[in-house]
Amino acid sequence: MPQTLIRLSMLLLAIALAGCGVFGKEIDPTEGWSAAKLYAEAAAELDSGNYAKAVELYEKLEARYPFGRHAMQAQLDVAYVHYRAEEPEEAIAAADRFIKLYPQNPFVDYAYYLKGIVNYNRSVGFLDRYIPMDASQRDPGSALDAFNDFSALVEKFPNSKYAEDARQRMLYLRNNLAQHEVNVAQYYMRRDAYLAAANRANYVIEHFQRTSAVEAALEVLIEAYRALDKPELAADAKRVLELNRQAGRLTAAQPKPEKVDLARKLWEYFSLDEN
């Protein structure tokens, strides 16, 4: 082979190997970007729906400029990205991290609210998009988590712009949690487990007052006491039910809150640094 061709072949091989990172680290097109540019590009990827790329850029921003204001923003944005990407565990973990690191941040209420919405959506359920279902029939774990998230928001930030919506969702969730207990009590009745049914019904009456489930709980309690051959207790429960019906004290079911279209938190309250 002529010398010229040998040299050309070696040059082409060197170029190919360099492109594969053999002679050094692979070229990162973001190398040398400022924090502002990384943040802007990550936000653009988020807005375009390229969530994986957005997370990648936000993480690079946090790694390169961990103490800048953009990094703080990025951490909250990452929670939102995971929320939009329907990755609830990751969204909640990112929101929790922000709350832990920046408990005094002016927008930390947003992190609490985002957690609540993520868990609320999980309690509503994926199948609701296609098949309407009774939320009280589902595992109450996510509903309880959402209730606690919204409760923390309302307690810590009663004047937050998200507080009123959180309160409405808490009412709806509380009714669902109560109805879930009634569903369990009714299941026990069908299984002839009358004492267990009575205990569940009493739990609803004691712990979920002013919910629509109380009426059904009293009805279960009457049937359970009759089945247990406790006529006096059945009569007491029936009297309580009738008195509350006559007085109009029984609460109607809470309407389902409208679906929230949670937006990314915008950070207008300070001028951004130019790291």
Rank of each mutant, 00 (worst) to 15 (best):
L12Y: 01
L13K: 02
L13I: 08
L13Y: 00
L13G: 08
I15W: 00
A16C: 02
A16G: 01
L17E: 00
L17S: 05
A18H: 02
A18W: 06
A18I: 11
A18P: 01
C20W: 02
G21H: 06
G21C: 07
G21Q: 05
G21P: 05
V22R: 03
F23Q: 07
F23H: 11
G24K: 10
K25W: 05
E26Y: 02
I27G: 13
I27N: 11
D28R: 10
D28C: 11
D28S: 12
D28Y: 02
T30F: 03
W33F: 15
S34Y: 01
A35P: 03
A36R: 13
L38F: 11
Y39W: 11
A40H: 10
A40K: 13
A42D: 11
A44H: 12
A44D: 15
A44Q: 12
A44M: 08
E45W: 02
E45H: 14
E45S: 14
L46I: 04
L46R: 11
D47A: 11
S48L: 02
S48A: 14
N50T: 05
Y51S: 13
Y51Q: 07
K53S: 14
A54I: 03
L57Q: 08
E59Y: 03
K60D: 07
K60Y: 03
K60S: 08
E62F: 07
A63H: 11
A63P: 01
R64S: 14
P66Y: 04
P66F: 01
G68L: 05
R69M: 14
R69W: 13
H70E: 10
A71I: 09
A71E: 06
M72Q: 15
M72I: 14
Q73C: 12
Q73K: 15
A74L: 10
A74C: 09
Q75L: 11
Q75D: 12
Q75F: 01
Q75T: 12
L76P: 10
L76R: 07
D77Y: 01
A79T: 08
A79G: 14
A79Q: 10
A79D: 07
Y80D: 10
Y80I: 04
V81M: 12
R84D: 02
A85K: 04
A85G: 14
E86Q: 12
E86N: 14
E87V: 04
E87N: 03
P88A: 12
P88T: 05
P88K: 02
E89C: 01
E90H: 09
I92H: 03
A93K: 05
